[in-house]
Design a protein around this nucleic acid. Sequence first.
DNA 1: AACCAAACGCACAATCTGTGCATTAAGAGG
DNA 2: CCTCTTAATGCACAGATTGTGCGTTTGGTT
Lengths: 191, 191
Amino acid sequence: MMTTATPRPGGRSARVQQAVHQAVRSLLAENDGDRTALSVPLVADRAGVNSSTIYRRWGDLPRLLAAVASNQMLPEQVEDTGSLRGDMEAWFIPYVEEFSSDLGRQVLRDMLADGAVTRDYFALMNGHVEELRRLAKARGEAAPAARDIIDVVVAPVIYRILFNHESATELNVQDRISLLLNTGPASSRQS
Amino acid sequence: MMTTATPRPGGRSARVQQAVHQAVRSLLAENDGDRTALSVPLVADRAGVNSSTIYRRWGDLPRLLAAVASNQMLPEQVEDTGSLRGDMEAWFIPYVEEFSSDLGRQVLRDMLADGAVTRDYFALMNGHVEELRRLAKARGEAAPAARDIIDVVVAPVIYRILFNHESATELNVQDRISLLLNTGPASSRQS
DNA sequence: AACCAAACGCACAATCTGTGCATTAAGAGG
DNA sequence: CCTCTTAATGCACAGATTGTGCGTTTGGTT
C-alpha cells in the first residue's frame, strides 16, 4: 500500500513484509500496545527474519510501527447505501469503533510518528471523502465540501480520541454527521 | 507543571529537572527534532546528570520527551482584550504559529506518546476555554459551548497540523473563529 | 545537631543498534 | 531448462544503550 513499493511483489520480499507486519501486530496485542516491550530483534525473531532486514527496509522501529499502523488503519471502502448519511455512517462508524479503543489509539499514535506515512494517509482519507461526495452528487444529493466533512466530522473525533481518550459512545459520531448535514441539533448552542 | 509533582520543589530535584528539560530542548533544536539523534545517556551528559536519574524519574526517553513537550506547549494565559473574538485570537493564533512548524509538530507528537500527559494537557486546554467563556459572559457576550470551541476551532487545526503538516497561513485560524462566532463565511457550503 | 527519606551517582550485565561482507532467490532472456 | 543479474536477505560483530543493585549525598524536619 503506502509502504515501500516492492519491485517484486510476488516474491520473497512480500513474504518477509507480511511476516514482519504480522509479528508486530501479534507482539503489540500481547503487550497491550506497550512499545517498550518491542524491539527490532524481538520482531525479527518472531517473524523468522534477520534483524538487519528490518533495519534495511524500515530504518528503525518507529518507522516500522508507522508502516504497520497505516496498513491496519485503512478505513473500509466507501459503499453506496442510498444516501450520504448512510454512506458516511457505514464508512466512519466502524472506523471509530476500532480506533477509539486503547489499542487502536496506540496504532494511531504509531502512525503519527512517521510524517511521510501520515500525509499519505491523510491523502487516502481525503480520497474516500471525495468518493462519498461523488456518490452523493450522482444521486442528486447536495454534498458538503470535502474540507467541511473533514473539519466537522473527522477532525473532532480523531482529536478527541488522541487527546482525551474518548470512547465511541462519548464521541457521538451520528450527531456529528447530523451537524454536518444540517439536520441535527443546533450547530452552536450559545449560553 | 504536569510532570511528577516534586515533594521538594526548591532543592536538587528541581535543578535536575530543569537541567534535563533544557538539555532535551537544546538537543532537539540542534537536530531539527530528529528523535533518533537523542538517547538517554546523551541527554544525561548534556544535563550534567547520571543516566540512571533519568531512567528513574521518567522511565524512558519517550516519556521524558512527552514531559518536556507538555511543558513547552503551554498556551499563553487567557487575557481580556475586550471581546471574545479578540481573546480567542490572542490566545490561539500564537499557539498555532508555534506548533505548525516542523519542530512544533514534532513536539506535539512527542506529547502524544504519553497518554497520561496528553489527557492532563487536554484538561488544561479545556480550562483555558472555560476561562474564555467566563470572560465573555462577564462582559455580557454570548459564548459558544466549550465543546463547540474545541470542535470547531481547536480540533480541526490540530488535526490538520498533525496529519497534513499544514502551515499557519493554510490553517486560516481567523476564519475558523468567525465560523464559530457565526459571523463569517457560510458554515457549510453545499455543492 | 542529628535523623530520615528521597534523590542521586556508580558500576556493570544484558540487550539492542546498525553496518560491512557473503550468500540466496526472484525474475529475465535465451 | 539453464544461466545470468541484481535486489533482498543472512551473518558476524563493534559500539552504544538499557535498566538495575547498591552505596552515597542532599534537603527538609525535629
